[in-house]
Amino acid sequence: MEERIQLKVKGLVKRFGSETVLDGIDLDVHKGEVVVVLGPSGCGKSTLLRCMNGLESLSEGNIFLDGEEVSSSGKKITMLRQKIGMVFQSYDLFPHKNIMDNITLAPVKVQKRPKKDVESQAEKLLKRVGLWEKRKSYPRELSGGQKQRVAIIRALCMNPEVMLFDEVTAALDPEMVREVLDVMLELADGGMTMVIVTHEMQFARAIADRVIFLDGGNIVEDLPPEEFFTAPKTQRAKDFLQTFAYEKRRTDTN
């Protein structure tokens, strides 16, 4: 990991009507760093990621990518979004396009890259996740786990500098979670800068360079994973981890 700051969040406030969801977030993500964002449901994890990608306007504060500001309107945002890939819980592949066309659409039409180049990049990635045979299939013909891996490849083929993942395994059957997480682990090993929201605690622990714990609109913990999972500083983080420990005990006895 280098010391260069790739993504900088400064004094981010996000309100929906009178409700303040994010209340002054400061966060620096360095190049090659993997930041996992944890927190109770509704604490604003998705909102934080959506702000980073300019899908939500900021009530206050700024977000910078490589020192350039991300603002949610204008031409600049579409430029910047090409450098920030985002993968959602619901995959959101384009249902009327086959897998290969889903992947090549934006690189060809937005980045104006030669179709051949994008296709050979897609071929490499599809082969790596075992989905090359599915290139002509439509999204409806794929399982959830397969769709999610395609969604990740689709984002990767834009050659982004940062990847944002919002609970990408939450909608998947347990046996498909692994195949998606493996792809993300491999990405992290390859040095991709990543911000990940997840409810998979073991995965979080394995992939994170840093764990951010969000609660009440603020970052209340910012620790290396070992420290966060073994010795969290705040009671709220302890309570949060406790809920997962409980689930774990339950499944162990079954």
Binding site: R81, L105, V110
Partner: peptide, 10 residues
């Protein structure tokens, strides 16, 4: 769908 397109820079 629209957000997914937006996040791809479209």
């Amino acid at each position: 769908q629209i957000e997914s397109a937006a996040s791809l820079g479209m």
